[in-house]
Computed example of a mutant assay.
Amino acid sequence: MNAESTTVPTAPTAAARPAAKGATVRRKRRRRAERRPRFAIAVTVCFFALLYLPIGVVALFSFNAQKSLTVFKGFSLRWYEAFAHDDLLLGSLGTSLRISLVATAGSIVLGVTLALGLVRSRNRLGSLAGLIMLVPLITPEIVTGVAAMLLFKGVAVPLSTATVMLSEVTFSISYVTVIMRSRVAALNPEVEEAAMDLGATRWQALRLVTLPALLPGILACAVLVFALVFDDFVLAYFTTGVDPQPLSVRIYSAIRFGVQPTINAVGTLMLAGSVALIALALAIPRLFGRRGGLDLLSGK
């Protein structure tokens, strides 16, 4: 054998030993980080159990065949049938739907307009207005409700469904403005400028270019605001009149004399509707984004 073709293993040098040791330490840390944090998982499970277990109990006893809130005697739809024949609850449901529709329409129109103005504004007044729009989001809702009630009392406006609508519109504008402001800022202003260069007026460019681009965000905000207003209790409680009352206030008035199984059925329906609306609000932007991508691929 030639000496040149023979390789003799050499011991690692002093410089290579710290590097190998450091690689081993990094592997151990990576393995330790990849382990499941059992304490965090246990805390998360306990949190969701405490959060959703009462809701699950309400939903379960809404199907109870017996008029009991402690003993479950089998599944039945009798309490949902009782809700369908309760004129007071159905009237309150209609009132809540009207309030939610009006509040959604008003907050969308005002919120989108304000978002466009805040993004297009280049002075300090626009920045100050943007900060002011965040105040209702961090203000306790009970403070907003009391302030709205005192305002209507001060100007001698009787509390009614109209005052609830005005209060809900005012409270919901901030949600729409904050969400739509980011959507407007993401738009390319050159597209609107190109439309005006082709002969469109500013209003036509807004109606034919800007608003269609903002449509997914507008629809998502509309669904979200509708769900929030429909479930709202604090603001509706302080600004509603004697009759007709929103459904949330009617439920509160009913449970003061004892919780009835019909209220469990109403609460379950409200929960299911709210979850469906919020899921729809989250799915709309993704649906439009996927459809937009398919349109681009197909050349439409």
Results as ranks from 00 to 15, higher is better:
L151Y: 14
P212F: 09
V45F: 11
S172H: 00
A156M: 11
A283V: 13
L187I: 07
V266T: 05
L69D: 07
T70Q: 02
V109L: 13
I284M: 10
R32M: 01
L125N: 10
P158D: 13
W203Y: 05
S96I: 07
P158G: 09
T144D: 04
E141C: 10
T201E: 05
E4S: 10
I138S: 10
T139C: 11
G199S: 06
G299D: 06
L271C: 10
L101S: 15
F288Y: 14
D231G: 01
V191C: 02
G154K: 05
M149I: 01
L151W: 12
Q66H: 08
V71C: 03
L206K: 08
I108E: 04
P212N: 06
Y175P: 07
A283P: 11
V169F: 02
A148E: 07
A265H: 10
E34K: 15
R183G: 00
S68N: 06
I132F: 11
I218F: 03
A147N: 04
R290P: 02
E34L: 13
E4H: 12
F72T: 06
A156C: 12
F152H: 05
A156L: 14
F152S: 09
T6G: 08
G299H: 12
A283H: 09
P140K: 13
V249L: 11
R31G: 15
L93C: 10
A283N: 09
V234Y: 09
Q66P: 00
T210R: 00
I173N: 05
L282W: 04
S127A: 15
A254N: 09
G217D: 01
I41E: 04
S253P: 03
A115N: 08
A65K: 12
D231I: 04
A16S: 12
K73D: 09
P140V: 09
F61P: 10
Y52R: 03
F288N: 09
A205F: 08
L228I: 07
A23Q: 05
I55K: 00
T7M: 11
P212I: 04
A279R: 07
F39R: 14
T44P: 00
G111C: 15
N64C: 02
F171C: 03
V184D: 05
P244C: 02
G258E: 13
L88Y: 05
V25E: 08
T70A: 04
F257E: 14
R120T: 07
R32H: 06
R256Y: 06
G199Q: 11
R290Y: 09
A272N: 13
R26H: 08
I138Y: 06
D231W: 04
V249S: 11
V225L: 04
L214M: 03
K153G: 03
Q66C: 06
R26E: 03
M149G: 05
F39H: 11
A82G: 02
T144L: 15
L187M: 09
V57Q: 10
P246A: 06
L208I: 01
A105S: 03
S121H: 01
E190L: 15
H85E: 08
I99S: 04
E141L: 12
C46W: 11
I173Q: 02
V266I: 03
T161A: 13
V229T: 15
I142N: 00
S127F: 06
R27K: 15
M180A: 06
S167T: 14
K28E: 12
A40V: 12
L269N: 00
A279F: 13
L134R: 02
L150Q: 15
P54W: 00
I263W: 05
R98D: 02
V191R: 10
A3M: 00
W203F: 13
I138N: 09
R122Y: 02
